[in-house]
Design a protein around this nucleic acid. Structure first.
Lengths: 111, 111
DNA sequence: GATGGTACTAACCTTTTTGTAAGTATGGAT
DNA sequence: ATCCATACTTACAAAAAGGTTAGTACCATC
């Protein structure tokens, strides 16, 4: 990579992505939504350590950022489904790279 | 992606990568080191908003995680250079995906 | 009327992350 | 003796992130 000097500013692309999907839970949530829409309770089962409060809050953030869509069936008890929209799906290659990196890292740490 | 149900555990690959390079500054530091070794003061110039304390602390973390190497020239005033080692360079595709995602996202937000 | 289920809100608390400020070490220059 | 440059340590403070707990709404069931 023969790159020129790139000074990091508040608005550099890495920062943008970090602000959108950074933190402890968002990428894990989006990873779970990669395959199919899921309800809140289903997400909670698949991400056992997350608190309900954080799950709801991070889903709301992702909806507000237009990466995830929320579908309310209007039933009682409430049935709500969340799914990645087209823009949200663009995060999947990044998630793949995160997983690949971890595998390479673990392999290196094991020798 | 026809994936089976993958339950997130404390040790899933995404979590591993988040723990290694998550947070506000590490990826930005590694991005700056992509092209060439840099001294602390050079890094500080290229990442203007970071505090010196955080820069030093995160560099130490990256060295401890064996993603970055530190070379002390043993001079006065001190001259120390940091560079990505082979393992650290494996983060670069992830950084590329972060930048690509941000570009796609900004393009989408602009229409 | 009480209970259940699900998805949510809100107040408050704890933990983690980040930043500020003061200080240190060292050889060379003044 | 003082100042300089650089890279670092440390104590403390502030900000941000994450978690706990109690509560709400509403229809269906018992």
């Amino acid at each position: 990579m023969d790159q020129e000097i790139i000074k990091i500013t508040a608005r550099c692309p890495i920062r943008t992505t970090l602000e959108l999907v950074g933190g402890k839970w968002k990428l894990l949530i989006m990873f779970q939504l990669a395959a199919q829409p899921l309800r809140l309770s289903e997400l909670k089962k698949r991400i056992p350590d997350i608190s309900e409060k954080m799950l709801i809050q991070e889903l709301k953030n992702l909806v507000d950022s237009k990466l995830v869509e929320r579908k309310n069936y209007g039933e009682v008890p409430p049935r709500v489904e969340y799914h990645l929209n087209d823009l949200g799906k663009k995060i999947l290659p990044l998630i793949s790279e995160m997983r690949s990196f971890a595998v390479a890292y673990e392999a290196e740490s094991r020798v």
